[in-house]
């Protein structure tokens, strides 16, 4: 049951990640921060908002602000009919949905495979990435929620 303990205490040597795919790249979100996974439906556009704001939607009576992660990461738009998913998270008491392409599995990764951001990583990515995990045959970038919102909310508030 050591894995459960780890989950509960947010163990130091291994963390569980929910993996998602955005534009072909694998990303991981710490599972403790993911509230739910849903299909974003009837999203209301918010004019004048930052480009990455996909809109607002009603998720079981709560208003969720949807953020298009492709736009956030400056990736090309997905096909119009492409399936999308969203990961529900909370930030400072507010609900957000990160719109991504697909949700993968839950991985337990130990700190051994963790590495800091490579120095040549695209600045816009490095800004929201909390490091990289070396997996078999691919790399998983850790999405750092705090930095993600820090980078988005503050410059906008200033604008």
């Amino acid at each position: 049951m050591s894995s459960n303990d780890n989950l509960a205490t947010g163990a130091e040597d291994s963390i569980q990640y929910v993996t998602v795919v955005i534009g072909g790249q694998l990303f991981g979100l710490p599972i403790s921060q993911v509230h739910d996974v849903f299909v974003p439906d009837s999203v209301t556009r918010v004019p004048l908002a930052a480009p990455e704001v996909a809109g607002v939607l009603n998720l079981r009576g709560r208003i969720v602000t949807a953020i298009d992660m492709r736009k956030r990461l400056h990736l090309p738009d997905r096909d119009e009919n492409a399936q999308v998913m969203a990961v529900g998270i909370e930030h400072k008491g507010e609900s957000y949905g990160l719109v991504i392409d697909t949700v993968g599995e839950v991985l337990r990764l130990s700190m051994d495979s963790h590495e800091p951001n490579p120095s040549n990583l695209d600045k816009r990515w490095a800004e929201i990435s909390g490091g990289v995990h070396r997996l078999d045959g691919k790399l998983m970038i850790i999405l750092d929620i705090k930095r993600l919102f820090g980078a988005m909310v503050e410059p906008m508030a200033a604008a």
Partner: peptide, 12 residues
């Protein structure tokens, strides 16, 4: 309902 802080800069 208040908007999320990401949208609060929109005066419209």
């Amino acid at each position: 309902k208040p908007m999320s802080s990401m949208l609060r800069n929109l005066t419209m």
